[in-house]
Amino acid sequence: MMQYLETLHGPYGQYFAVERELYRDKTEYQDLVIFENQTFGKVLALDGAVQTTTADNHAYHEMLLHPPLLAHGQAKRVLIIGGGDGGSLREAVKHPIERAVMVEIDPAVIELSQRYLPELSDGAFSNPKAEVVIADGCRYVAETEERFDVIVVDSTDPIGPGAVLFTSDFYRDCKRCLTPGGVLVTQHGVPRLQPDELTDGYRKLTALFADATFYLTVVPTYTGGAMTLGWASDEPALRRVPLETLEERFAPLDGKTRYYNPSVHQAAFALPPEVQRLLRRS
């Protein structure tokens, strides 16, 4: 049986037994492979790094979208940078928003995800709230005149085409695109294996926003322990919304999530000492 070896972390990695390879080729931007695994279902990998699976993607996509949207409480316009598999778009359109704009640089990711991994988007691409823009996300936030209540950066790791989505200039342009009191959420990898990614991100975000921190989620295929998601806003109160308020806002979504609930939301912002030390190092 074939094996897929993830090479993201150099001296440490993981392998997947490939039950069936569904697609393998190089797009204009990156190497892309989709295969089936007995434990994790369908797996999408880019440039040697697992991006998402049908079995555990909810722990990532739900935690990217629901904390900022439910904390904000009145978001109408959402911007997703990246996320071509459609998982983040799927979670966004569950909310009573007006528009969810997804900006993806690689149209092949969208096309192939819809063909081989339709479970991830679950019809979100055809939702009337959804709008897909094929463009460089970095350039989009630098040039657009639109403003958004929540911006979510559903990016790859800072390698290849995703590297520009971890720069100060990009974060500054994201802030420009936020409405007053808006929230920016980013992904910053696994602290155990990518500590510099966390400290560098914290330094850049705190230089731009009045309130910047991280929260945690656990995605088994993002190997190495809990992963960190960045939270940045000029409205500190959004990080301290009472549980009762979150529960009230969550009620229409109850039964539609597999990982997220309001209690998990609040607990996710409790960072272990080793992560806190990484922030102080920045």
Rank of each mutant, 00 (worst) to 15 (best):
E28K: 14
Q38I: 09
L44M: 15
A55F: 08
T27V: 10
F40Q: 02
E28F: 05
Y29R: 09
V33R: 08
T54R: 05
V33G: 01
F35G: 00
E19H: 09
E28S: 14
Q30G: 13
E21H: 07
D25N: 14
D47V: 06
A45C: 09
Q51E: 10
F40M: 01
A45I: 00
F16I: 08
A45N: 01
E28P: 04
K26D: 11
V43S: 02
T53A: 11
Q38M: 09
R24A: 13
E21C: 09
Q30K: 11
G48P: 06
A17I: 12
V18E: 08
I34S: 01
L22Q: 00
K42S: 05
Y29H: 14
E19R: 14
G48K: 05
Q51S: 06
Q38V: 11
V18M: 06
D25M: 04
A45S: 06
K42C: 03
I34T: 01
A49E: 03
Q51R: 12
T27R: 02
L22N: 00
E36I: 08
T39R: 08
N37P: 13
Y23W: 08
E36D: 11
A17S: 11
Y29Q: 09
A45Y: 00
T54M: 03
G48M: 14
G41I: 04
N37D: 15
D25G: 02
E19T: 15
F35I: 00
Y23Q: 01
A17K: 12
L22W: 02
L32I: 15
L44V: 11
A55K: 13
K26L: 07
L22Y: 01
R20F: 05
L46Q: 09
F40T: 04
V33A: 02
G48Q: 07
E36T: 10
V43K: 03
